[in-house]
Write a protein that binds this DNA or RNA. Sequence first.
RNA 1: GGGGCCGUAGUCUAGCUUGGCAGGAUGCCAGCCUCGGGCGCUGGAGGUCGCUGGUUCGAAUCCGGCCGGCCCCA
Length: 484
Amino acid sequence: MSLHPKESAGLTVKKNEDFSEWYTQAVLKAGLADYAPVKGFIVLPPYGYAIWESIREILDKRFKESGHQNGFLPVLIPESLLSKEEDHFAGFTPEVFWVTKAGDKDIGERLALRPTSETLAYSIFAKWITSYRDLPLKINFWNTALRAEIKATKPFIRTSEFLWQEGHTVHATEEEAEKEVMTILDIYKDLIENYLAVPVVTGFKSDSEKFVGAKYTTSLEGLMSDGRGLQMGTSHHLGQNFSKPFDIKYLGKDTKEHFAWQTSWGVSWRLIGALIMVHGDDKGLVLPPKVAPIQVVIVPIHKDKDAEGVKEKAREIESDLKKAGIRTHMDGRDEYTSGWKFNEWEMKGVPLRINIGLRDIEKGQVEFVRRDTKEKIPCDRPKLVEAASSLLATIQENLLTRAKLFLNENNFRPSTYSEFKSIVEERGGFVVAGWCEKVECEKKIKDETGADIRVLPFDQRGKPAKCIYCGEEAKKAAIFARAY
RNA sequence: GGGGCCGUAGUCUAGCUUGGCAGGAUGCCAGCCUCGGGCGCUGGAGGUCGCUGGUUCGAAUCCGGCCGGCCCCA
């Protein structure tokens, strides 16, 4: 594992004092990302990209197991195609980058750098699908999308180009498409909770927040440490909204022509931003073991004359752990003191550290240091590999437990609108309230408090009786929050 | 959409008000020393002062435009 060029010192702000500055420093100083020369674009050094690779491996496996295949789509979409579905086009057009020239010659029709690929993919799918035998078609694309972010940008959370996957499926029946939407949502939930250790609430987006062009959008919403919500992923039921303009039709067993039913879904590197925000602390990142590029770092502690002996032991440990499939790095650099290394690896969020010096070798032990609790745990050398795996599992579990606790503690149920406002304005968090399903109420609340409907949870137990804004009968329990 | 702050070596920064030799710390390189929480010493290299135009005998400094980073309000 090559290291990012080292920057001086640690974080200069505390997480709970200046969250925004803390986040930026945590990302940059850990070597997860760096700014590119163009506004809103970032560069990923290997340490940052490795986290994305972990996420991609996990999802890719799950997608393939559930019958999806990967494909490739070009980055340019002609305007005529992008504009074929009106709502979709109107929704995306303010943030589209356009290519208008080839060399110094003007191009006849503007070409969009894909903000998302529905239109392009579906114009192709229309050619591929003629019979019910061609269905279902389930394809995923690992690529980037480009959406111009003119004002606020933040590494991983809001960038003008982002790494993501976009899945697109075509089905013969609506039921099958609806099932697909939920299958994907479950895969996302498993990834986010059981690998990234970020608890989420799943449910529907309100009509005004749904994907432009979709029949409905399901979503996974996380809560960040500053009380703001973050959309972690979405899975859309497109109905026949795209199959009609793009003419995706098949001949059924009934020998009649039918429009197909479709879904699309995606998660992006935003997930990396979320796990930084949720788990990080004043010392820097705390990465969940399952996605950490380095799970265990070994820091040998020695005087010059003892260096080779101690490092030799450290290398043995490294080799044992690697054989057991644990991603391990032995930090044998001579130019840094052990204290310096402790701080650096903490900043980079390595979940488990092993200290080994003469003291430990004499006792036949090593010392584990947990990143999440800072706890130091001695361990006999023969039990080391087993203990490391079990500690990694414990850390993984503890991160989720801790995050769940935070989510529960920051879940509020105000009974009046003024109480609602003061929670949103003073503490943040997920605010559960009744909603009459009228757009006016949703909009007024957003205008007056800055909080919007993050999600209408699938779990509607405990739905309040009245709309928090107008007092009429509540049709849904909604989770409101200010969001990224 | 509206308002504000900022940009000087890899990094952080002084200098800008009142124009006149670009300075420090840290990092980097060499050598020595050291290692259980960001060691120490000696020497060295490193700068289009974000870019661009203007004012001036002279611009990091004053003025305009642009690029980039950040914050607040809606």
